[in-house]
Amino acid sequence: MQILRELLETQLLGVLGTQHEGEPYTSLVGFVATPDLKQLLFATGRSTRKLANLSADSRASMLVDNRGNRASDFTEASAATAVGVVEEIGVAERAEFEELFLAKHPHLESFVHSPSCVFLRLRVSVYMVVTRFQHVIELHIEP
């Protein structure tokens, strides 16, 4: 749990996995986790492929890891895959979540505020946390 929190707090980017009619697709996104770690917030342009994919199928995954492109990563790096459902953040919550997001990514302010930007959240149902290359623990979020 501590490893997961550390990963989600220290890493700026995650790899978002979506699909369209069985065709897999991944994209790098800036994200922030809510304090309870149950949601991962990210933003994307309205015309992107990932948004099109998510509009058709909201199921998605996000990989967050701390590798440094060294041989030792195989054992020293940790990774967490979040699996869940993506939805757009409604007006009521937008201000609060935007503040959280911009505290981590201040340089993305104009991007987030652009009219063509959609602010999304991945509601996580399970995290799969991998350490030491192959040690895998699942953290299921109780409904």
Binding site: M1, D36, K38, M128, Q134, H135, V136, I137, E138, L139, H140, I141, E142
Partner: peptide, 9 residues
């Protein structure tokens, strides 16, 4: 709110 389950040890 979390339940930890082993997957691969």
């Amino acid at each position: 709110g979390f339940q930890a389950l082993p997957r691969q040890l």
